[in-house]
C-alpha cells in the first residue's frame, strides 16, 4: 500500500487543482516546482474549470495490474480550456465512441484500489462527454 503518496495528491486528483505561475500567469497542471514557461518558482494553487477537449485517445485492452478488471477503458490526452494537457481516463461514454476534438468535462471517479480489496480507495479526475 502507498497511502502517503496518494493522500498527498488528493487536491490535484479530486478537483484538478493545479497552479498559476505568480510570475508569468501560466496555468500549470500537473503542479510543478518550476514554471515550465518562465522558470520562476510556481506555488500558487489554481482551480481548473475541468472543461476541455480530447487531443488524442486510446482504448486499453491489455491493462497494467490494478486496472485489468476494468478493460476495455479509454485513456485520453485532454487539452484543458486553460491550456495544459492532462492524461486521464474517459468515462461514461456509453455507446459513444471517443474522438479527437470531443468536448469533455471533469468528474471525480474511483481510479482503483490501493493494492487490493483491503486497501484504501483512490479517487481522482476522469473526463466524460459534456452532459449538456
Amino acid at each position: 500500500m502507498e497511502i502517503p503518496r496518494h493522500w498527498r495528491l488528493k487536491k490535484q486528483r479530486y478537483g484538478l487543482v493545479g497552479e498559476v505561475c505568480p510570475h508569468c500567469d501560466a496555468k500549470i497542471f500537473p503542479p510543478r516546482d518550476v514554471c515550465p514557461h518562465c522558470g520562476g518558482e510556481a506555488k500558487t494553487a489554481f482551480n481548473f474549470s475541468g472543461r476541455g477537449e480530447v487531443y488524442s485517445y486510446t482504448v486499453m485492452h491489455d491493462a497494467p495490474a490494478g486496472f485489468d478488471q476494468n478493460t476495455p477503458y479509454a485513456v485520453a490526452l485532454v487539452k484543458l480550456e486553460e491550456g495544459p494537457v492532462v492524461t486521464a481516463q474517459l468515462t461514461d461514454l456509453g455507446e459513444e465512441q471517443p474522438r479527437i476534438g470531443m468536448p469533455v468535462e471533469m468528474v471525480t471517479r474511483k481510479i482503483r484500489e490501493d493494492a487490493n480489496e483491503r486497501g484504501m480507495l483512490i479517487y481522482g479526475y476522469k473526463f466524460r462527454p459534456v452532459l449538456r
Binding site: 479530486y14 468528474v107 471525480t108 480507495l121
Partner: peptide, 13 residues
C-alpha cells in the same frame, strides 16, 4: 452505477 462510481463519487457530483 458505472464501474468507477460509488456513493462518494456520486455525492461529489
Amino acid at each position: 452505477p458505472g464501474l468507477d462510481e460509488d456513493v462518494i463519487t456520486m455525492s461529489i457530483e
